[in-house]
């Protein structure tokens, strides 16, 4: 099976965040970037499916040049090729614009299955994979916690997470788009051999025209959502912070929980 995996590079969740001078995004200077959490699980699921079905994984990402590092990691883990949509025309999109661009890149590769993460840890639209599916005209599922290729290879049995700890199980036809939820598997680590091999693997960098798209169909030009400003939420009822070193703060807290709050 030929499998496309969409990978987004996002700020590390531990990163210290500051608002950029123009107020419309975070200041990316000194921010460490990593592969989006659920995308790591999507990649692992793709690699496993490629191994069992005798296929390959193509890693695809839309973003600036720094994203090359995330794609190199995907190649080191076992993807055979990568596609990077770094052309400046692709910048500034929303889920609708980025989904269209990613779908066009995938269509050019002729894949049987697309895997994405369920939600990005920066924009958090929870939508891009679904938009990809819409453009390809394929069925999709969000929050996938299990995938099995059914006998004959024309359909999948998919387990999808629902609220409050239950899962729904259903059958879907291939080709399809699956948006993978974190926790579905245990992502592997890159081996030294994999890291060396990745250096020789191809990262294609198509322009919108290469994908058969007008510049007006992608990036900021096509986005229906415009960010006016970003900021930190104002705190409504903030916690009473107990000052001091660990020992004195802990003593104060235990005193309050026994006295004022009476919960221990």
């Amino acid at each position: 099976m030929k499998i496309a995996v969409c990978i987004k590079q996002v700020p590390d969740t531990e990163a210290r965040l500051r608002v950029a001078p123009d107020g419309r995004w975070i200041d990316e200077a000194d921010v460490p970037f990593v592969i989006n959490e659920s995308d790591e699980y999507a990649l692992e699921e793709g690699l496993k499916l490629a191994e069992t079905t005798g296929g390959e994984v193509i890693a695809i990402s839309l973003g600036p040049e720094r994203v090359r590092e995330a794609l190199r990691k995907a190649l080191a883990l076992g993807a055979s090729r990568a596609v990077l949509l770094a052309n400046t025309a692709f910048r500034g999109g929303d889920a609708l614009a980025d989904g269209r661009a990613l779908a066009a890149a995938i269509a050019r590769e002729g894949c049987d299955l697309v895997l994405t993460g369920s939600q990005s840890d920066d924009q958090g639209f929870g939508a891009t994979g679904t938009v990809v599916a819409g453009h390809l005209g394929w069925p999709h599922a969000w929050l996938v916690m299990g995938v099995e290729v059914e006998e004959g290879g024309a359909s999948l049995q998919v387990t999808r997470e629902m609220e409050s700890g239950t899962n729904e199980i259903f059958r879907m036809a291939l080709p399809a788009v699956l948006e993978i939820q974190a926790g579905i598997n245990h992502p592997r680590y890159a081996s030294l051999k994999g890291i060396m091999a990745a250096k020789k693997k191809e990262i294609a960098e198509p322009s919108p025209a290469d994908l058969g798209l007008q510049e007006s169909e992608v990036g900021a030009a096509a986005a229906r959502l415009e960010v006016l400003s970003v900021g930190f939420p104002e705190s409504a009822a903030a916690a009473q912070i107990l000052e001091g070193d660990a020992v004195s703060a802990a003593k104060k807290l235990v005193g309050l929980l026994q006295g004022e709050a009476r919960v221990i």
Partner: peptide, 24 residues
């Protein structure tokens, strides 16, 4: 989390947790 918490300690949990155990 501090926006929904009633009490907070800003610090390393690996120091705070043993300190809480001792304080209790």
């Amino acid at each position: 989390i501090f926006k929904v918490a009633h009490y907070g300690i800003v610090g390393d949990l690996h120091e705070v947790v043993p300190a809480l155990t001792a304080a209790v």
